[in-house]
Amino acid sequence: MLIAKFPDIDFAPHPLMTRAEKSHEQLCARVPPERLLEVMRFLRTDDRCNFEQLCDLTCIDYLNFPKARDRYGVIYSLLSITKGHRLWVKCFANDPSPQVPSVVSIWKGANWLEREVWDMFGVRFTGHPDLRRILTWEAFEAHPLRKDYPLRGRGEREDFERITRESA
């Protein structure tokens, strides 16, 4: 149905994972970033799709993932409440300045989710109304969920003024 509507895009629909015995029922489609808004608007409004809710929006840094070509995969998890089905949409971006269009105009709930992805991965969402850091503070420079950021950080957690009993 998606393929019929947009014949020029290679969606490559595939299940999220395939096991030896059976293929998983969770379906995933791939959309290039420049067509994302158009496809999403179709998915939201079309009567056969009716994905009213953006259930989740996340990102994966496929830095050392086996057989991965692109680095950042932004994953939209769509849910239709009336139809009761789900669809995962993946949109890939790459260094040096990963960019994906924002879907806040379609689902209001994408606001904080996109801010979180920007904060954690450094993927910029063009057209986002208020793209600030959300979980870390404004002066923080790194994007901690990238694979090349160490688990224990780069000394941010030791950088405070020490209060002793004299100084308080």
């Binding site: 999220l16 994972m17 395939t18 096991r19 030896a20 998983h24 969770q26 995933c28 259930c55 989740d56 996340t58 994966i60 086996p66 994953i75 998890s77 789900r86 995962w88």
Partner: peptide, 20 residues
């Protein structure tokens, strides 16, 4: 585990708690 991705969600007291 096999190479791939999966999503599992439960209805918890606050709403849909899922893990991707």
């Amino acid at each position: 585990p096999p190479i791939g991705e999966a999503y599992g969600a439960n209805e918890t007291a606050n709403g849909e708690l899922g893990f991707y």
